[in-house]
Amino acid sequence: MKVYAIAVNTFKEVIRDKIFYSLVFFALLILGMSVIMSALTVGERAKIIEDLSLAGISIFGIIISIFVGIGLVSKELEKKTIYTIISKPIQRYEFLLGKYLGLALVLLAYISVMTLVFLVVLLLSTGVLGVGLLPAVLLIYVELLVVTAAALLFSTFSTPTLSATYTLALYIIGHLTSDLKGLAAKAGAESAKAVLEFLYYALPNLENFNIKGKVVHDVPVGAAYMFMAAGYGAFYVCALLLLAALIFQKRNFK
């Protein structure tokens, strides 16, 4: 009930913010552009629209995750609205969880609306019914949940700017972790090797959530893979939130 109340309030907070709308607007713009691009390029029109749209939905989702995610807690601290919450019969981790779920809800709404628009655009412009793309959308959402949890974690102990930097770094490295392993194999110094290997195992491999190319080119993705990927994401979300809660519990609210 309390967590739900915080989540709903967070949902309202984001939904009533102009920045959110401009991001959604740009994401829709990308969908529109994909249709124009597909008309100008040679190749299969449907595949171009699918490629661009899925990438657009993913990128703008990430931007929302990072930039709204880092503000979830820091805004409450900066405006001191957190004072009236923590003085109520609510545990700090409940507050944190509520903030997280609120943004997760916003992202769910975002991705649902975008996907719907995308599928309609695709159907109208090419006659293709793109339901086969839905697994990719699902994993994009899982990735957004992981990135949001990371943004929340960083914002429990650092400034918004630093949190954004860290989260962005995590996102980029998260898509390059297979390269990390390669680098580790090649690294000369033992210490460098150790650090790279540690990063490889500690950081989430976000490529696991990227099946966009596969679905667009009709490469089958099994249910087992979907479950594995979702479980992998859930594990990271839980770990990141747990760490965030531990740090948040110790904080003095200035």
Binding site: Y83, T84, S87, P89
Partner: peptide, 15 residues
């Protein structure tokens, strides 16, 4: 115990 407590912070700022 906060069920029975009410608090108004200094310079309150709200949603």
């Amino acid at each position: 115990v906060k069920r029975g407590v009410g608090f108004l912070p200094e310079h309150p700022y709200f949603y």
